[in-house]
Amino acid sequence: MEALYNRQIYGETTAIKIEAMGSTAVGIANRWALGWPKRVLSLLVNHQFMEKLIAQTELEKDILANETALKHLSPREILEMHGVSQEPPEAIQHAG
C-alpha cells in the first residue's frame, strides 16, 4: 500500500482512519491532496472529509468490482467511462 501523502494535514486520528480503510482510500486521499490541496483542507476544516472519502471509496470499489468486461482498461479509464470525478467535492459551507 502506498504511504499517505502529507499525513500531518489530517491529524493522527484521521490519518489512521484513512489508512485503516485500505489502499483504495489512501490512493483517493493522495490523489485529492496532490491535485486539490485547498479543497481537501476545506473539507477537513468543515468536518466533511471522511464522509466524502468513504463515499468516493465505496463508489470506486463498486464500479471496479462490477466492471468485469473492461479488464483491458486501467481502473482510472474505467472510472472515467462511468463519469466518476477524480476531484474531491467542494465543502458545503454551513451558515452560522
Rank of each mutant, 00 (worst) to 15 (best):
83 G>F: 03
61 K>A: 12
81 M>S: 10
7 R>F: 08
60 E>N: 07
50 M>S: 05
93 Q>Y: 13
7 R>C: 00
95 A>D: 10
61 K>D: 14
53 L>C: 10
27 G>E: 02
90 E>G: 01
43 L>M: 08
43 L>G: 01
41 L>F: 09
53 L>G: 01
56 Q>C: 07
25 A>S: 10
72 H>Q: 12
30 N>D: 11
37 P>G: 00
75 P>V: 12
35 G>V: 05
91 A>V: 06
86 Q>K: 13
31 R>L: 12
5 Y>Q: 02
87 E>G: 04
89 P>V: 01
7 R>D: 08
79 L>A: 00
4 L>P: 05
92 I>V: 15
12 E>Y: 09
3 A>R: 10
40 V>C: 02
15 A>N: 00
87 E>W: 04
92 I>H: 10
94 H>T: 10
89 P>H: 08
84 V>F: 06
60 E>K: 08
77 E>W: 04
47 H>M: 08
79 L>E: 03
56 Q>N: 07
22 G>W: 03
58 E>D: 12
12 E>S: 13
75 P>F: 00
10 Y>C: 08
56 Q>E: 15
31 R>V: 00
89 P>G: 04
36 W>I: 00
29 A>C: 06
12 E>F: 09
91 A>H: 07
55 A>T: 09
15 A>R: 04
7 R>E: 15
71 K>D: 11
36 W>H: 13
62 D>L: 12
